[in-house]
Amino acid sequence: MKVLYFEPSGFCLWSKRLKRGQFQVRPSASGQQALTWTDLQLILDGIEVEKARRFKRYHHPS
């Protein structure tokens, strides 16, 4: 998996390779996919993004 992102000082490229298995990501037709930071963390931790349950956080009304 290669991750390319931009920060004020320039572009950063990360690369990670698994010894066994594979990342559970469904790429788009072009092979590229934009992810949120949370989705990226789930994928790198081996959690399938489509099956992850997400809950809304409580927000106290002002």
Rank of each mutant, 00 (worst) to 15 (best):
P27Y: 14
Q22M: 10
K19E: 11
L42E: 00
K56C: 03
C12Q: 12
Q24D: 15
L44W: 04
K16A: 13
W37E: 12
S62Q: 09
A34V: 10
D39S: 09
K51F: 03
F11P: 00
E7S: 15
S62E: 05
M1S: 05
A52Y: 09
L35T: 00
L18F: 05
T36H: 02
K56P: 08
G46E: 02
L40K: 00
F11A: 07
S28A: 10
K19H: 13
G46M: 02
S15E: 08
S15I: 09
F11Y: 15
F6I: 05
R57W: 02
M1L: 13
K16S: 11
R57Q: 08
A34D: 05
K19A: 14
F55L: 09
H60K: 12
L18T: 06
W14Y: 08
R57N: 10
H59R: 10
S28V: 02
S15M: 12
I43G: 00
S28R: 12
A34F: 07
S9Q: 07
W37T: 06
G10R: 02
K2H: 08
M1T: 06
Y58C: 04
Y58E: 09
R17W: 03
S62I: 07
L13H: 15
T38N: 07
S9M: 09
H60P: 01
R17D: 14
L13W: 12
Q22H: 13
F55T: 10
V49K: 07
V49C: 05
S9D: 13
P8Q: 05
L18V: 04
Q22K: 15
